[in-house]
């Protein structure tokens, strides 16, 4: 296909992506170098029947003029990246200089908002992803072995937790784990502790979010593995049987190696999706004990008075760098395959 025809087919889609994905990334990079204007204060005197008092107030007109002139705020260089709510370089240096042991360092770092969010995001990504793959595989093998009339309904109901949006799915579970809901009440009676609440401790909240993540994504792994199982070559399976492989050995040495490429695919998709975990934190009202990078950005943009564009943009840039690091191995592998093909 000549370049010109190619371009005439692809330009609408290309323009959409450039305008609304590439350009915003540039805009984020630009915004991250700026911070909000400092407030212009005026001192005014208010006189009442009991004498005059001096009052400091924000000069709204001057602020508006300043904002109109420089909508992005004032230039701050990399200041936003290194401040206490992002990379916190000074704080980290101080923590390493003054702490005595590892656990103290860990605890103090966990108090810095960016690192707290980063650690949660990474734990979520790297705990949920393998669990999803394992659980999805187990369900796929089990469903593959049950009578055909069960398969349809199982697939139907499995798709629901995945296709329902995370906010709604997490709300459904959130209401059930409420201490007055069915799961919350059941846990209380199992552990014989009427004050037990999954929302109270950070550890339990983290576990709840992990469980939610697995519940939400396992169906995806299940469906992909199940489709893969239908294509496992019968000859290989039969020759393994002839060679005397038992049930477990057939799974271990035939099925699993055959499904390995699918596992890589699921892992890639899951890494991308789990890294942006965000809605469950809102659904479970878990922000007090667990925040993710995406949540930090959302929170900055939702700031009560005016959105903190600079801070949100700096976190966004750091998140984008994280995504690229996460994708590097995949990109490299794709590049090699492409070179081999051409």
């Amino acid at each position: 296909m000549p370049h010109k025809t190619f371009l005439s087919f692809i330009w609408p889609s290309l323009v959409a992506m450039l305008l609304f994905i590439a350009l915003p990334i540039v805009s984020v990079g630009f915004q991250s170098l700026y911070v909000e204007h400092e407030q212009v204060l005026v001192v005014g005197e208010t006189c009442g029947p009991f004498g005059c008092t001096e009052e400091v107030s924000v000069d709204a007109a001057a602020m508006a003029a300043l904002r109109a002139e420089q909508p992005a705020g004032q230039f701050n260089g990399l200041g936003t990246y290194t401040n206490a709510s992002h990379l916190a370089t000074d704080e980290i240096a101080e923590i390493f200089a003054t702490s005595e042991n590892f656990s103290e360092i860990r605890n103090r770092i966990m108090n810095l908002p960016f690192y707290k969010a980063l650690i949660f995001t990474l734990s979520y990504t790297f705990i949920v992803t393998p669990l999803v793959i394992i659980l999805g595989f187990i369900i796929a093998v089990a469903v593959n072995a049950v009578p055909a009339m069960l398969k349809g309904p199982v697939i139907f109901f499995s798709l629901i937790p995945m296709l329902v949006t995370p906010l709604v799915g997490s709300l459904v579970l959130f209401w059930m784990i409420d201490s007055r809901g069915i799961i919350g009440a059941a846990l209380q009676s199992i552990f014989g502790d009427p004050s037990l609440s999954l929302k109270a401790s950070p550890t339990l909240t983290w576990i709840t979010l992990f469980v939610y993540g697995v519940w939400h994504s396992a169906p995806f792994a299940f469906v992909v593995f199940y489709a893969g199982l239908q294509t496992v070559p019968r000859d290989t399976m039969e020759s393994a049987m002839v060679d005397g492989a038992n049930r477990w050995e057939r799974i271990r040495f035939v099925t699993i190696p055959y499904l390995m490429p699918l596992a890589t695919f699921i892992a890639l998709m899951q890494l991308m999706d789990n890294f942006r975990v965000f809605e469950p934190i809102i659904g479970f009202s878990a922000a007090a004990s667990a925040t993710s990078l995406s949540y930090l950005i959302y929170n900055d943009l939702r700031a009560a008075e005016s959105p903190l564009f600079g801070s949100a943009a700096a976190t966004s840039m750091l998140t984008i760098i994280g995504v690229i690091i996460l994708l590097l191995p995949v990109l490299r592998q794709n590049w090699r395959e492409f070179n081999r093909k051409t």
Binding site: I21, F309, I320
Partner: peptide, 12 residues
Amino acid sequence: AMPHVTLVSGYL
């Protein structure tokens, strides 16, 4: 793979 919220912070 871009988290949508990072793009949103570029749009606003």
